[in-house]
Amino acid sequence: METKEERQGLNFYFFFCQRIDKEQEKNRRTIEKSMGDKVRLFPIPCSGRIEPIHILRALEKGADKVYVLTCREGLCRYREGNLRAKKRVSYAQKLMEEIGLEKERVELINLKKENGMTIDTLVEDLVGKKTNIGSSPLNKPLL
């Protein structure tokens, strides 16, 4: 199990529904200051906008771990956006496994609380969480 510092050596990509944090543009800064380019945040109009290709592209671009944050089930403004996001994430996971990437590299977080959380605390919690995954094999230098 790696240390927190090592975990913070990883690149995290966060896709999140804009309804989670209306002040995301302001709140994200705290975490970006402490983590720099190691964490990249992408608000999307609805988590249902996430497509497997977003996740694959993120991994291609160097993400070690991709999180998709959706609003609580039943709270989606589009009614089923977060349900669709869930299916798409698991489809992406299937593809990743086929390629040989651990499916744990992408994770869907369905927020349990009401909306109105701050993105920086969410990101901090998730980055601080213990994981078994290390640096992505895609980020290793070519031999």
Partner: peptide, 11 residues
């Protein structure tokens, strides 16, 4: 098909 506010624009 539906429309949604673009968070990048709004922010």
């Amino acid at each position: 098909i539906q429309k949604g506010i673009n968070p990048l624009y709004r922010d």
